[in-house]
Design a protein around this nucleic acid. Structure first.
Lengths: 232, 232
DNA sequence: ACCTGAACACCGTTCAAGT
DNA sequence: ACCTGAACACCGTTCAAGT
């Protein structure tokens, strides 16, 4: 299970493999070729070994992709300005940093899963929880609220970002939205009264704004839940 | 693209294939064996044909799974009591119906993707939009708010439900939570001040409550956003 | 128009053998 | 302890041939 950590702990060959090295190379391949493009054969070739060698450091492809996605999640902490402000703005900044990190590595979005078990996912939930704990909310609600926020961040990011991994290779985002808008327009207005009038919004929408709209609703709900006390 | 619809439009053989038949059989196999267990060879055998025949009705496995997931989403409408109440309770009932439908078919959770293009996903967003339109919110915000709610429902459901498809075959949910709780306890309290104290909440938590906690926060935020008018 | 099934071009993963 | 690479047991998908 644990296998090697650390890089060539002394006396190892200079070009020794390690889980870090493998995950790093996997991220690069995933960025370039997507999840289907990542292959143990190809990855092994890049690292100048045989496919079997990789299995000494990761137990299978699922674990490898999960580790790679957690690596991407880690980028968010580098971008996040960190605390120093009130809980509300801290949560918002953190959420946006996660969205942006996943936005740059779309294949990762659908692989950040709950409850967290990997290093950076754990860090994320802990940070959210600590911010929530600095709120007017009663202590017994901290965990459920922190979890709800964490689920929103990763779940909604995945909803918005993951579809890109399917289409982007073949059609551009704009072309996809335009085609979808045309399909909505062609629907029967009696069956779909809302969608048939909403197509211009679909064409114009910015993904990041979609994410923050719901986020602000959720964080706004926090104020309500906490009662009329200092802003969260 | 379009291929056959409808079942044996007259003069067809009684046992003729159709997309509906294929999707129905796929749902059954997905329920039983999960996404990896669904195989064109196996599916063809169940339907007493060769694998090639399926490609006349669906273009590939991705499309088949997407259609199967949309089928599952359709179950939610059967369960939903429907309108007759205010927007807030209507949205809540619809959201919970979707969660429960996905809960019964966990493999589907990660395949409901946005923006909607398939029949039931379209219906869902239209229904949410219609409910939101019956709110005090200004009209120009209807689309973004409806989308935000829709993203919450499918995205957070997927976060909560999808992990089960990975573990359930090997370990039970309780065993997984217990193991995760133990890992959290073993973390350094200085690095993870929140998580190390939260493990009992993790063990006790009910998935469905996690979903509704965030949902109520989000819907509560709607009241704030709409100003002090009649409840949404 | 729709079905058949063999064949192609891959995969992830294992494992005996090496160093 | 770690690496090698051939081999196993599959896949999704295609396509010439049938009805």
């Amino acid at each position: 299970m644990q296998r090697t950590r650390g890089r060539a702990p002394t006396g190892g060959r200079a070009d020794a493999l390690s889980q870090e090295l493998i995950v790093e190379a996997a991220v690069a391949l995933l960025d370039e070729l997507g999840e289907r493009g990542l292959t143990f054969r190809l990855l092994a070739k890049q690292l100048k070994t045989g496919p079997g060698a990789l299995y000494w450091h990761v137990s299978n492809k699922d674990e490898l992709v999960a580790l790679a996605a957690d690596q991407v999640l880690g980028h968010a902490f580098a971008a996040d300005p960190g605390s120093g402000e009130d809980a509300g703005s801290g949560l918002r900044a953190l959420a946006v940093a996660v969205f942006d990190a996943l936005d740059r590595h779309p294949w990762a979005a659908s692989h950040v899963s709950a409850p967290p078990t990997l290093a950076n996912a754990l860090r994320l939930l802990d940070r959210i929880g600590t911010l929530v704990a600095g709120t007017a909310l009663p202590a017994e609600r901290h965990f459920e609220v922190a979890t709800a926020i964490s689920y929103y961040i990763t779940g909604v990011s995945a909803q918005i970002i993951a579809p890109r991994t399917v289409h982007d290779a073949t059609v551009s985002r704009d072309a996809f939205l335009a085609r979808t808008a045309r399909r909505w327009e062609a629907l029967d207005a009696a069956d779909y009264p809302f969608l048939t009038r909403a197509t211009e919004h679909l064409r114009d929408h910015a993904d990041r704004d979609q994410f923050t709209t719901g986020l602000d609703l959720l964080l706004g709900g926090l104020n309500t839940a906490a009662g009329p006390r200092p802003p969260v």
